[in-house]
Every structure is written in structure tokens, then in C-alpha cells.
């Protein structure tokens, strides 16, 4: 596969991981609450990450510490943002929005944030030009996602 398409394929596969993750983590929520499911996922995930890192270190394939710059303190708060996401979305799911509305609005929020973030180079990441083709791609993917999310409500 060409270098050009590798990140492309990885991102698509990453979306597959997300589906599996939601399926598995949801199995905790079936017997409990969204808070419990998220707590278990973060706890078992912490252990899994340590095991993965230890495995890499033992096989001598640990990432060389690419210390270009020290990370700012705020860069450690990704986990906080992720945990709050669970609380917001589990509240929204139990409103009139239901799961489908919550999912659809979440995608809109994510798309809007990422466009602004690239445009202005937020969070210390490179600023990027947004091409018309990117906006077209975004529109097609959001429309397709909307059809899938609401398919069971739309079905005759």
C-alpha cells in the first residue's frame, strides 16, 4: 500500500475498533450504568496500556522517546475530556433525542470542532487548509451516517 493511503486505511480501521469498543463497553452498561461502563473501560484500559507498553519494552521495540518538545500540562487532560463525553452523551440518550439523535448530533459537533481546529491550529497541532473537496467529503459522509443512524426509524 502506498504511503499516501496508509493513514487513510488506518483511520478507517480505527473506526472499526470504535464500533467494537462501543459494543464491548456497552455490555457493562447492560447490567449497570454508563458511569460504571466507562469506569470499567478506563480501568481495564489502563492495565492493558501498561501491558502493551511493557511488551514493546521487553521486545526492544519501545518507541524511541521522540522528545521534540515537552508536552504542556494541559495535553494530559485528554482522559478528562473523554470521561465527560460519556456523562454528556448518556444524559442525552435518555432524553427525547434517544440514541439516534444523540449519535447524529455528536457527529455534527465532532465535524464542526475538527474543521475549526484545523483552520486555526488549535491545541498545538499544525494549521491546515480546508479544501472544497474535504467539505464535500464531509457532507457525503455525514449524510450517509445520518441515513444509517435513522435507518430503523425511516424503514417502512
Amino acid at each position: 500500500m502506498s504511503n499516501r493511503l496508509l493513514p487513510f486505511a488506518l483511520a478507517f480501521a480505527s473506526g472499526g475498533l470504535l464500533s467494537l469498543m462501543i459494543l464491548f463497553n456497552g455490555q457493562w452498561a447492560a447490567n449497570g450504568t454508563a458511569l460504571f461502563a466507562s469506569w470499567m473501560a478506563h480501568g481495564t484500559g489502563s492495565i492493558a496500556a501498561l501491558v502493551f507498553l511493557a511488551g514493546l519494552a521487553l521486545t526492544g521495540r519501545a518507541h524511541p522517546r521522540a522528545v521534540r518538545t515537552k508536552a504542556p500540562r494541559w495535553a494530559y487532560l485528554g482522559g478528562l475530556s473523554g470521561a465527560v463525553t460519556v456523562m454528556l452523551s448518556s444524559t442525552a440518550v435518555n432524553s427525547a433525542l434517544a440514541l439516534s439523535g444523540t449519535l447524529a448530533l455528536g457527529l455534527v459537533g465532532q465535524a464542526g470542532f475538527s474543521l475549526l481546529s484545523d483552520r486555526f491550529g488549535w491545541f498545538g497541532l499544525p494549521r491546515r487548509r480546508i479544501r472544497v473537496a474535504d467539505l464535500g467529503a464531509l457532507a457525503l459522509i455525514l449524510a450517509g451516517s445520518g441515513l444509517i443512524i435513522f435507518s430503523e426509524r425511516l424503514a417502512p
Binding site: 473506526g15 472499526g16 464500533s19 491546515r128 459522509i141
Partner: peptide
């Protein structure tokens, strides 16, 4: 690949695998 491209492709992968 930037925030937009990542979000776009991850959403695509999530929807289709779903």
C-alpha cells in the same frame, strides 16, 4: 492527517463496521 480527515475517516469506519 489533521483533525478533519481523522474525524471523517473514523466516522466512516465506525458507520460501515456498525
Amino acid at each position: 492527517i489533521g483533525a478533519t480527515m481523522t474525524a471523517l475517516l473514523v466516522i466512516a469506519g465506525q458507520m460501515i463496521s456498525g
